[in-house]
Design a protein around this nucleic acid. Structure first.
Length: 117
DNA sequence: GCAATGACGCTCT
DNA sequence: CAGAGCGCCATTG
């Protein structure tokens, strides 16, 4: 039980760091995408794009965080252990109107989120 | 505490 | 424009 408590505390410790990341991701408008690097920067964690991926990976279903709108700087859906999640992400984005080219990349010039600040 | 890992990014070729 | 290489940094074993 102590172990469970410790584990929970660790989770919250990370949550405080990831909390900022989730807050930024929630700001991404419907039908728009943002890169991990941009999210990291807006979350006040410059040069920590990888941590954004880590944080999103830790998300649970029903988290209300539009994780599907976060892709890499090349406009591609990043690969991961579960190829299934990758297809789901693309399906979700397409249902929002985001288009993919033949190479499976998003036209960033048209769909990249450009926050005023 | 060191070494490996990862939903990444930028530069150079 | 595509691929390879190197850099970054918190988390994990």
């Amino acid at each position: 039980m102590d172990a469970a408590i410790d584990m929970d505390m660790d989770s919250q410790k990370q949550a405080s760091r990831w909390q900022r990341i989730y807050r930024v991701v929630r700001r991404i408008p419907h039908g728009r995408v943002a890169s991990y690097g941009l999210v990291a920067q807006l979350a006040g964690l410059p040069r920590q794009a990888r941590q954004v991926g880590y944080a999103l990976h830790a998300l649970k279903r029903g988290s209300r965080v539009p994780w599907q709108r976060v892709i890499n700087a090349r406009g591609e859906i990043s690969q991961r252990a579960e190829p299934e999640a990758e297809r789901l992400q693309r399906a979700l984005l397409e249902s929002e109107g985001v288009r993919f080219d033949a190479r499976g990349r998003v036209e960033l010039a048209r769909f990249a989120w450009r926050p005023k600040r």
